[in-house]
Design a binder for these strands. Sequence first.
DNA 1: CTTTATTTGTTGCTTAAGCAATAAAACGCC
DNA 2: GGCGTTTTATTGCTTAAGCAACAAATAAAG
Lengths: 194, 194
Amino acid sequence: MQDTKVDPRITRTRRLLMDAFLKLTIKKDFKDITIKDITDEATVNRATFYSHFQDKYDLMDAAITEDILENIVDNLSHYNELNEESIVKIFVTLTQFHTNLTTQLNTQCRRSYASLSSIIEPKVKKELEKVLYSLLLKQQSKLDSEALKIGAAVLSWGIYGASVDWKHNSSLSVGQYIKIALPFIVTEINHFKG
Amino acid sequence: MQDTKVDPRITRTRRLLMDAFLKLTIKKDFKDITIKDITDEATVNRATFYSHFQDKYDLMDAAITEDILENIVDNLSHYNELNEESIVKIFVTLTQFHTNLTTQLNTQCRRSYASLSSIIEPKVKKELEKVLYSLLLKQQSKLDSEALKIGAAVLSWGIYGASVDWKHNSSLSVGQYIKIALPFIVTEINHFKG
DNA sequence: CTTTATTTGTTGCTTAAGCAATAAAACGCC
DNA sequence: GGCGTTTTATTGCTTAAGCAACAAATAAAG
């Protein structure tokens, strides 16, 4: 789990631009929003806008991506214990993510599903892995930290994969699907308890 | 009315530091807040903190000053017409400003009254002048723009001076004081109507 | 349709802010 | 009280962001 530190100025400036954009979408249609509107609202120089985004479409994609990701992170941070209930809720969150992705794509994004998901998925998986690692730690497993990290990785891929499978291949409802998948996941978790 | 444009980075960074400070005062006593806490919360480098403020006391003074000023500006922006009612309310706002200044000084600031008021007063007077100019414009006076600017300046000094006089020399209540002062002010305003 | 005004995208130069390092001061623990 | 840790205040160097200017594109006005 390697973290590359991003210069805080970059983070803050992107945040300013995205927030300004979202604020403007409340008052104006997308087509009527100018780059000048955005940079004025954000108190950011126009040259700076272009050093971060190609155009306002690029900004919109980024704003949507961030919004979706923040929603996921927020949802995934609610659990204190790794049990059937939390796994079900995590799974539901992931399926909602897939549904949201499709919805945003249809209404606003200029990117393809593959393009947008290729950006968001690594981040979602990373966050899922962090959450699961944290929950496995709380279980006070007999395994050491390194084994738990690997365990969190394997588990997160499994759960995430199940949500992708549900999205692409299943005609079952979310509840029905997870009911069938749950025993496999729980067995895996019990293995980590030692 | 000369406006010097401040680099937006400076404005934003000061805002970040002040907001971070205020956020921390909710969770911690002043004495327990470290510069590190503030800069971490603000996502601002420590060197940057010191390029803006001397120490956390300096930051606190600035945050208080800004808070008072924002309160004044907010209050002064509520009027659509220059009449007895709005003048009374403006006067009340100014007297409250003086009272707030004394209160903040007694409870938190390390600066003397003279020191703090010498920083805030020019800004309050400037804002008052802007408001009065705007209101005089709305009256559709027969005087030209330049004369109205001078009129706004004279008028703002008069009203501000009355509030200072009330603060330092009067045993009357605010309402009693303005009742006596109002005819002088109204006469002056009628002069501008032409 | 023509003219005017506004916006866009870019450039080279300047400035504010980030970084790591340092020494000193302050704090917390035993 | 001594020691280890954290915080402070500062420095020189690097990087992101600001600025004005420019030409082209687009939008608005008559």
